[in-house]
Design a protein around this nucleic acid. Sequence first.
DNA 1: CGCCAGATTGACT
DNA 2: GTCAATCTGGCGG
Length: 174
Amino acid sequence: MDKINKEFFLRNADIVACELLGCEIVRIVDGKELRGKIVETEAYFGKEDPSSRACQNGDLRDTMMMDAGTILVYGVHNNWLVNFITNCEGIASAVLIRAIEPLNFNGRGNGPGLLTRALGIDKKLHKKKIGDELKVVVRKKRPLIGQSFRIGVKKDLSKPMRFFIKENKYVSGR
DNA sequence: CGCCAGATTGACT
DNA sequence: GTCAATCTGGCGG
């Protein structure tokens, strides 16, 4: 499998969110390699997205406008949520990883806060680039994709911006 | 500076 | 069903 290049993330967030489904996320921590399959994502945008933190000022918005392939770690409700920055520098756009299927480790990944905990992701990875401690590997086959409105968001967009692999039991949901 | 809200989760009544 | 924990930024005093 090939490692994902920067070009992959240099597209609109909804496209990238879709394409990320089925890809493997590889986290290197303490010399160990934790692998998980991405099964659920959401796309977030800039000021036109009322639920995005990029419609506010501050470090999070600045990070969302950084170049493609940057990791954004967002702390909320005692949980760290991971985003990958997409699109060109200057355009606020990101993809939230909402759920993964654990491949070579024990732990739960069926929720945005759970997967970061399982992979040991925290603020230390904020603003770093994908590639060293955290990698993404291209999927082998295109999975069957479902689409819906985003979860947990109070002010969602008029378009469904959540994508997930159909019939995968690790997709989040309470 | 204090208080509120929010892309959440889990424990307790 | 209800509530608290942690981080970031907006808003009021």
